[in-house]
């Protein structure tokens, strides 16, 4: 990638300018990394060291005791079985919700670009606006509805909620991707005798790799990181990871174990950070697609 400003023939002052630029960037990078560094080092320290020492210092004798405690023994509310149950709750919620919403989004995007009918724009507009509503505006009815459907306080209920409120974004992603897919290919397939689903499975889906990755990552990150739906529609043992982390950190009983809190936070951050590190390109693309609409 080349910068917008091309290098030109320049004198000595350019050297100093570059030193300043690099210095600034490195300083800023350090600041951005600091909270993560503190989080990690604190989780590896003992409580005594935390109380007596410096937040920025490296742990004198690193130990994963806090990690094992956070995973298996820490008290969330009145149960002291660690966060592992909640971690799995999140997994059980994220996987089906991501798969279902991505698949539906792909089909919707396909219909809205390749099988247009009068009114397709208003339908898409309505689905798009649904991405941006403050969820507070649907919280109360949704709580009642989940109760009526008998899936309140269950992982199924959360999957249901996340699929519904993720549909707008997944549809947006696929619509914009398929918009650029040549119509002539659809016509050719039609003349070759392929029908609606055949065109989708055989022609469109095999070429959708990049947008599937983007959508899956976007949905995974969003659903894993969700807190509002988790805290509103689950309780006790059915909560997802983020809610459990908040309960752990906010609990005021007993001694405040900062190292355990930080270890739990690392656990909560790990899946999305992992995705970010292995597929950062797609992560950014998803954010961009979600931010720049139309």
């Amino acid at each position: 990638m080349s910068g917008a400003v091309q290098e030109t023939v320049s004198g000595g002052s350019a050297k100093t300018a570059r030193v300043v630029i690099y210095g600034l960037l490195i300083l800023l990078a350090a600041i951005y990394l600091l909270p993560l560094y503190v989080m990690l080092t604190t989780s590896l320290k003992s409580l005594d060291e935390i109380r007596g020492g410096d937040m920025l210092s490296l742990p004198s004798s690193p130990s994963i005791a806090a990690w094992t405690k956070a995973w298996g023994e820490a008290c969330i509310g009145v149960t002291c079985t660690g966060i592992k149950g909640y971690f799995w709750n999140s997994i059980k919620m994220v996987v089906p919700a991501v798969i279902i919403s991505t698949l539906l989004g792909a089909l919707n995007g396909y219909v809205l670009t390749k099988w247009r009918f009068p009114g397709h724009k208003i339908i898409f507009g309505m689905m798009l606006f649904a991405c941006f509503i403050p969820f507070q505006a649907v919280l109360i009815p949704m709580a009642r509805m989940l109760g009526m459907m008998g899936i309140a306080n269950t992982t199924t209920g959360l999957v249901f909620v996340h699929v519904i409120y993720g549909l707008g974004f997944t549809t947006l992603f696929f619509r914009n991707y398929y918009e650029a897919f040549p119509d002539e290919l659809i016509k050719a397939a039609m003349m070759d005798g392929a029908g609606f689903f055949r065109i989708f499975w055989r022609i469109l889906l095999p070429t959708s790799g990049p947008i599937i990755v983007v959508t899956v990552i976007y949905q995974f990150t969003n659903i894993w990181n969700d807190f509002l739906f988790g805290v509103s529609f689950s309780s006790g043992g059915s909560s997802p990871m983020t809610v459990a982390l908040n309960n752990l950190v906010a609990s005021s009983t007993g001694v405040k174990e900062y190292n355990v809190d930080m270890a739990a936070a690392v656990f909560a951050a790990l899946p999305t950070l992992f995705v970010y590190i292995v597929a950062g390109r797609y992560f950014v693309r998803g954010l961009m697609a979600g931010a720049v609409k139309g």
Partner: peptide, 15 residues
């Protein structure tokens, strides 16, 4: 697909 015709497109429309 039922007209028994084939078409060559401007962009070729190869899958």
């Amino acid at each position: 697909s039922q007209r028994d015709i084939a078409m060559v497109f401007q962009s070729y429309a190869l899958y």
